[in-house]
Design a protein around this nucleic acid. Structure first.
Length: 834
RNA sequence: GCGAGGAUGGCGGAAUGGGCAGACGCAUCGGCCUUAAAAGCCGAAGGGGUGAAAGCCCCGUGAGGGUUCGACUCCCUCUCCUCGCACCA
């Protein structure tokens, strides 16, 4: 072959790998395993270089680990259920299944074109009954354990579409399809998974992930779980005979003597009861109605005006006995805490502002531990720090921490409060009024009520004949053959649940299925999971930092408690790769800045596209795609091919021994230079793969070595064929994880008939990397003043002597007093003069 | 406001158990090859000063200070950027 022809080479080796089953991995207890996985892709149809970068990183690691002798599991599959398929179906009249399968076919083609080393026997697609039946199975197990339950709850509703929207479809408080139509809250009965039961476990086990996961992901998860410790306190309503009380949650019970109001969320059920019979009831109710329309949506929190109204009732502060007015405020969240708060203007900034607006008092009950005491008259913002409690009856004088402890204990002893921990994390609403998802396997029987579908009736098949309008009720509700069913208990008439599951359920456990993808008796067997799990390296975008990555942690813990797995965390190490940008923005069809994967493979070859993905930036950083940049990588691979090609013929029969220090002693200067440089490169590239994952520097190092080879041309006659071949082989092996097709080709050209699949990552030999001579920098007062080339390993004294002997240094130091001399062996001499 | 990360040539980025700042690549310029171009190959190049040139000197890693013989690297203060969280009681 005369020139590097990526298209031909890539097709040739892909065929060969396929025929060999080169990337098939099976359980083998005798061998150590390595499970590397890229996040389950959604088959949207197009694959651009943003996707390919992700897979290239995973593939480089998979191939490297294989060369290190590990049994590597590297699977792929498709997150095949979901809304885009349904929308495409409505728009184009294609069935979601057809649309999805076409996309999968196309994406497979691209993945194969890039030669990713997947074990295709393990491919899964979540929209197939063989897969989603296990979603249903898990759901039933959760139902048995009260981890799945039904509840009315507020959802996002678009009045134009006449349908419920997922949170992801709400953009700035409006429907994604009707940007001027604010989403309304609508109460709907739906299914939840009780992830909050695992809130503490999810939080505590983050400690296990420390070091293996990016810190920012852990921070996001901690925030999301939002644990907060405090107390619940009941304020009895004044003049109510029935023992009614306003219950609040507070993290600062130490400020309770400073309470000036209790404020309810507008939709709190107690409000109507309390308003009944008060003076001016009609006027208050009118105001309440108005206020309820101003319940703040998440997008408005923080910016919108806070409003409140006094409802004409008082409650009694159980600590001080004082009467406290009861208000309703549009900023109090029904979903958090108890749906009511105690307002302490002096020690909470929000309460402070509320008190300003409505002219409430701001009694100070905590003073700073040091410094000038605060006075209510001059307070211009809330004092929210801990300090010393004052004007608080028997607690006066205590530090906040102690006051919190004692007041909580006393509240408990006297029966009007107790310590409480609450979480921001809410249960996971999984019902979707959509077609293209897993049917929720329950029946509603007139006689028996809610009846789970028995295991032996799984899967509850998603009917393929269905009319999709994108409007109103769940599409499945309009399929009588689906809806009408027989009660599994009494045999009578029953209605099937017509909602489908959130697709995040599918992706919460898929990586277990890869270990046993064709199991028809269970989601997976214990043995393969025990061998392969936990995942050694998971790779994906930061956008899943909380959703997918918290759901799958939750699933893992449920599976552990079901006795299915014996670990608590599914993923040991998480890597979050940067985006690929074009023109400073993420690639998207609508922006028209997509760099197609196939297009790049056709123009340059996939090895070049891969190499550039690894070279242009460290993998965790965003990468700006540059046409000239990828050309540079193309030039490099061509150059490397040519140089090997020039010598391959002659080298084919040459045997490379296992060169050692002895060989170096008898080597020519050119040979020494090449061997040293090659082993120095190997040392650093190995380090990059083992720890830092800075593939950009690995590529740079390989380029440097090729430049060195080129600089040494002609290689003959001063370098023996064995040495040249050794260097070529090292280069080829180092390049193999990054540009695998070219590496295979060169490996073959160098006379290896068995292919790279059986080749091992070369062992770095420190002796071969050692330099005989080193350049030592000479500084005077820390400033560079000269360089000398000396034998490696000179002592401090010798180095100083050589440095002072340098004519220029001698001249510069002549007549000056040497205060001291600092020596870094093999590197530097710094002469400090007075 | 809280939290995490970041700021290095014209550009992407190298170099941190403190020790030659700018590896590698892109773009640029010059040369070789060619009738010419492309490709390829060789070479130059942070900014400024001085010099015919080799060279030499000064400045330089967001800003200011500190520690040190020596700071992109460590410490303090500040500015800006990116991301996440945020009436969370």
């Amino acid at each position: 072959m005369a020139e590097y022809d990526p298209q031909a080479i890539e097709a040739k080796w892909q065929k060969s790998w396929e025929a060999q089953g080169a990337f098939h991995a099976d359980v083998d207890p005798a061998r150590p395993e390595y499970y590397v996985l890229e996040m389950l892709p959604y088959p949207s149809g197009t694959l651009h270089m943003g996707h390919m970068r992700n897979y290239t990183i995973g593939d480089a690691v998979a191939r490297y680990k294989r060369m290190r002798g590990l049994n590597v599991l590297h699977p792929i599959g498709w997150d095949a259920f979901g809304l885009p398929a349904e929308n495409a179906a409505i728009q184009h009249g294609t069935h979601p299944r057809v649309w999805t399968n076409n996309n999968i076919a196309e994406m497979k083609r691209v993945c194969r074109r890039f030669g990713f080393s997947y074990d295709w026997r393990r491919e899964i697609s979540t929209c197939e009954p063989e897969y989603y039946r296990w979603n249903q199975w898990f759901f039933l197990r959760m139902l048995e354990r009260d981890l799945a339950y039904r509840k009315r709850s507020r959802l996002n509703w678009c009045p134009q579409c006449q349908t419920v929207l997922a949170n992801e479809q709400v953009v700035d408080g409006c429907c994604w399809r009707h940007e001027d139509t604010p989403v309304e809250a609508k109460e709907i009965e739906q299914w939840f998974l009780r992830i909050t039961r695992y809130a503490d476990a999810l939080l505590e086990d983050i400690a296990q992930l420390e070091g293996g996961w990016p810190e920012r992901v852990l921070v996001m998860q901690r925030n999301w779980i939002g644990k907060s410790g405090g107390a619940r306190v009941r304020f009895p309503v004044a003049g109510s005979g029935d023992g009614a009380a306003v219950e609040v949650f507070t993290t600062r019970i130490d400020t309770i003597y400073g309470v000036t109001a209790l404020i309810f969320a507008p939709e709190h059920p107690l409000v109507a009861k309390l308003v009944a019979g008060v003076k001016g009831q009609a006027a208050i109710e009118t105001q309440l109605t108005r206020l309820r329309q101003k319940i703040l949506r998440p997008a408005e929190l923080g910016t919108a005006e806070k409003e409140g109204i006094f409802i004409g009732r008082f409650a009694v502060n159980p600590f001080s006995g004082e009467q406290v007015p009861i208000w309703v405020g549009n900023f109090v969240l029904m979903e958090y805490g108890t749906g009511a708060v105690m307002s302490v203007p002096a020690h909470d900034q929000r309460d402070f502002e509320f008190a300003q607006k409505y002219h409430l008092e701001k009694p100070i009950v905590v003073q700073p531990a040091a410094g000038a005491p605060l006075s209510a008259a001059t307070l211009h913002e809330a004092y929210t720090e801990f300090g010393r409690v004052v004007d608080s009856g028997p607690y006066s004088g205590l530090p906040s921490e102690q006051a919190i402890e004692r007041m909580t204990a006393d509240a408990q002893a006297k029966g009007f409060g107790e310590a409480r921990t609450i979480y921001r994390l809410k249960d996971w609403g999984i019902s979707r009024q959509r077609y293209w998802g897993t049917p929720i396997p329950v029946l509603y029987c007139e006689r028996c009520g809610l009846v789970p579908v028995p295991d032996e009736q799984l899967p509850v098949l998603l009917p393929l004949e269905v009319k999709l309008t994108g409007m109103g009720q769940s599409p499945l509700a309009s399929v009588p053959e689906f809806v009408n069913a027989t009660c599994a208990k009494c045999g009578g008439m029953a209605r099937r649940e017509t909602d489908t599951m959130d697709t995040f359920v599918d992706s919460s456990w898929y990586f277990y299925r890869y270990t046993d993808p064709h199991n028809s008796r269970a989601p997976f067997d214990r043995e393969p999971v025990r061998y392969w799990f936990p995942i050694d390296q998971y790779i994906g975008g930061i956008e899943h930092a909380i959703l997918h990555l918290i759901y799958s942690r939750f699933f893992c813990k449920v599976m552990r408690d079901l006795g299915l797995v014996d670990h608590s965390e599914p993923v040991l190490r998480l890597f979050s790769q940067g985006m690929v940008l074009k023109g400073g923005a993420a690639m998207s069809k609508s922006r028209g800045n997509v760099v197609g994967a196939i297009e790049m493979a056709d123009r340059y070859g996939c090895d070049t596209a891969r190499l550039y993905s690894l070279f242009a930036a460290p993998p965790e950083k965003d990468l700006e795609w540059s046409e000239q940049g990828i050309e540079g990588c193309s030039r490099f691979l061509h150059r490397f091919f040519r140089i090997v090609n020039r010598h391959a013929e002659r080298l084919r029969g040459v045997t490379v021994g296992n060169p050692g220090p002895a060989d170096l002693a008898s080597a020519t200067p050119k040979e020494k230079r090449l061997m040293r440089k090659a082993h120095q490169t190997l040392r650093r590239v190995t380090r990059d793969f083992e720890s830092r994952w800075h593939f950009n520097t690995s590529v740079a190092l390989v380029m440097e070595l090729v430049n060195e080879l080129q600089a040494q041309e002609p290689l003959e006659p001063d370098a023996s064929p064995a040495v040249v071949k050794e260097v070529f082989e090292l280069l080829t092996l180092m390049l193999a994880p990054m540009a695998p097709h070219l590496a295979e080709e060169l490996w073959e050209m160098l006379g290896h008939p068995s292919g790279l699949q059986t080749a091992a990552w070369p062992a770095y030999q420190p002796q071969l990397a050692e330099e005989e001579h080193v350049e030592v920098v000479i500084q005077i007062n820390g400033r560079l003043r000269g360089k000398i080339l000396v034998e490696a390993g000179l002592s401090e004294e010798e180095l100083v002597e050589r440095a002072r002997a340098d004519p220029r240094i001698a001249q510069l130091t002549a007549g000056r007093r040497v205060v001291k001399t600092i020596v870094v062996l093999n590197k530097l001499v710094n002469i400090v003069v007075g």
